[in-house]
Amino acid sequence: MFDNPDQSQNLSKTGEIAEASELLPRFPELLRQPCQITSLGSAGGLSGGAIWRIESDRRFYALRRWPAETTSSRLRFVHSLQHRWRESNLKFIPKLYTTVEGESFTENASEFWELAEWMPGAVLQKDTISPQQQDAVAAAIAAIHQAAAQHASSLEPSPGLQQRLAMLQRWRTIDKTMVNDAIERLAWPEFAVIAQQTLQSFAYASTTIGGELQAAVSTPLPLHACLRDIHRDHIFLTGALVTGVIDFGAVRIESRAGDLARICGSLFEDDRNRWEDFLARYERLRPLSAAERRAITVFDRSAVLLTGLQWIEWIALERRQFPDPAAVLSRLDISLRRLQFLLK
């Protein structure tokens, strides 16, 4: 243990920069000029990956180490979609740079790394987003959905809603004493308070939301590749122009209703008037069916019910470690606030 926390942090940063430096020669894009490397840690994310900002010849790049559980087949699927969307003239999708072997990622110490274009702009601010910015965000998401649907689509029940129903049913029958004991063993009082309130609220709301999921899971919906974790921190704007959409780690085949529920919940929480306004802007470009409209509501309400439980499972039951405890508590607090609003 270091007596000086700043010394410990500085040495950690030095080690992270050295780790990234070893990877740079694998990307021909960075061989022309000396590089300046800045470690961003998880950059506010909670997936377990890490990001470095690379400056070379007055150009900026993002070097990303993917979470440890990522597989090569999974990453090839994600990258194939990024390439396809970029080739559809969606310039807000980061360009991926190839390795000396011609691949879109490299492996080091059983972890996968990618080098991508650094996207300009600032993240969305939900309290100050303008109508013009809403138009731009709606258009960007619609364009991604359009490009994905043109490549491959089907009409089937939503995999995500099916997974949520299974999770809800599992938590209905879980050993509550075991969960409470696991929460207590963490010795994290702030987490314990939110977790206990989340469990109590789940008991009140699970029957209603379970019925909604049960009614929705068999409904066929148009499915294609969707982002699934498109929230305000993953969208960059310069003025009223979307200049970056990042983080494709959650991409899977799904209904676009899930994406629309995710972005609206992130931006507007429970202000349904603003939800309707945003969806109207999206529908000017990509109309929604009545079934998709209903699915948006079910996606949101089930996420409100289950998100806190997912965090309890990860932290208390699976004992996962996250680099920013304050960010975890912030996510849990938002989830609980929305859950309590749902119960009103």
Rank of each mutant, 00 (worst) to 15 (best):
N10T: 12
G15E: 15
I17H: 09
A18G: 13
E29T: 15
Q33T: 13
P34H: 10
Q36R: 15
Q36G: 08
I37H: 09
G44W: 05
G44T: 11
L46Y: 13
I51E: 05
D57H: 13
R58P: 06
Y61M: 05
L63D: 12
A68Y: 09
E69A: 04
T70Q: 11
S72R: 15
R74V: 01
V78H: 08
H79G: 02
N89Y: 11
L90W: 01
V100I: 12
T106H: 14
E111M: 14
W113M: 04
W113K: 07
L124I: 13
D127Y: 03
D127S: 12
T128I: 09
S130A: 10
A136I: 00
A136G: 03
V137I: 12
A139Q: 12
I144E: 02
H145V: 00
A148W: 00
Q150I: 01
H151Q: 15
H151M: 12
S154R: 10
E156F: 09
M167N: 09
R172L: 06
T173Q: 13
T173C: 11
N180L: 14
E184R: 15
V193M: 13
I194A: 09
A195N: 03
Q200Y: 13
Y204S: 13
E212A: 14
A215G: 06
P222M: 02
A225F: 01
D233L: 13
F236Y: 14
V242D: 09
G244C: 07
F248S: 03
F248C: 04
A250M: 08
E254Q: 06
S255Y: 00
S266M: 04
L267N: 00
F268V: 03
N273K: 11
R274V: 02
E292I: 00
A295L: 02
F299G: 00
F299W: 11
R301L: 04
L306N: 04
G308R: 01
R320M: 10
A327V: 11
S330W: 12
D333T: 15
